[in-house]
Design a binder for these strands. Sequence first.
DNA 1: GTCTATACTACGATAGAC
DNA 2: GTCTATCGTAGTATAGAC
Lengths: 209, 209
Amino acid sequence: MSQGRLLDIAIREFGAKGLEGASTRGIAAAAGTAMSSITYHYGGKDGLYLAAADHIAQHMAEEMADALAAEAGVGEDDAEGARAALHRLIGRLVEKMAGDDTADSSLFILREQYSPGEAFERIWAGMMGQLMKRLADLVCVATGAPGLAARIATVTLMGQAMAVRASRAAVLRLLEVEELDAPTLHTLKARITSNMDAILDRMVAEEQQ
Amino acid sequence: MSQGRLLDIAIREFGAKGLEGASTRGIAAAAGTAMSSITYHYGGKDGLYLAAADHIAQHMAEEMADALAAEAGVGEDDAEGARAALHRLIGRLVEKMAGDDTADSSLFILREQYSPGEAFERIWAGMMGQLMKRLADLVCVATGAPGLAARIATVTLMGQAMAVRASRAAVLRLLEVEELDAPTLHTLKARITSNMDAILDRMVAEEQQ
DNA sequence: GTCTATACTACGATAGAC
DNA sequence: GTCTATCGTAGTATAGAC
């Protein structure tokens, strides 16, 4: 029995039904194993839930690792370098949010944010916090805005990337498409990139006035 | 037994655990009534779920009704009027998303968008679709951008407003606050408003070039 | 390590008292 | 209309075979 496969199924089930709502029987059955193997490997339902959170954090860290590493060299006063780094990171984020493979883990995270517990702690510590703080630092360097203003702007940048994931069905309805096809995604990415430049330019102007 | 109160509790439970995960026993107990009264009033679990969706649609329609009505008079070529209307509508949306009273229904809607069914149909038809299409029309008038470009821009505007709701815990962590207090919310609203102007200005420039 | 068997609790639906 | 009682099913945990 592959533990990775069991964790993927657990993420899907916990994401869809929550810790209480999902059943270890259902998860075990979907993974083609006995329920008691969950007890053996993870100590029970709660242990499986935390292991699922760790699995998400690890997977996301791997997905963003190269993108984060590539931007590690941006200096304190390299505004253009910071902006280019933001373009790459937000662009990567939009692609991830648009892809189908983030659906299950996104729902898991969305729910965990609704009532944050130990699982959110691990996801934040594992990857999410690192990424968001890095984005905020880059906004700082790109605009010269103070920390708090940069962090608030970061929230609005991330929100644009997350819209296609959190509000997928509504977005598809509004755009009158069946799925997020390549041309639509390309147009959306271009819009978000252009928005980001417009926002950063305005923040630079606000700092200078 | 107040049916409104039962539906509020149902929205909370269904939002947290999903249709399968939530239990009619738990919902009835929280509402201080017998489980069989759900069967009597709504025919069963599925009926209660759809009634909860209708309740959300009705409540949101009431909350946004005056804001939508006030913008109904914006003409076809009134770019400034359209921009002012966008400011008011998005501002209202940010406040709603920041408030605690949208937490339960937001989670219900987020989950329903993950695997849309009859319940999403009703929420979209009842309010959400109307609001998003109106926003897109206003972006059209404000920028002169064609329909598809305006709808895609609308997605990015809505995303900024929804970030504080969908990613609440992460936002609080990044901003290093315990809750979304008035000064923080004010700063965020100002940022989103300013972002919107920057985006719309850029779209106007893109159309003219 | 993975399975079956079992004990106990909680689920949704329904029938019927009032 | 709202309640209690009951049925069949499905849940977690655990013990123990292999």
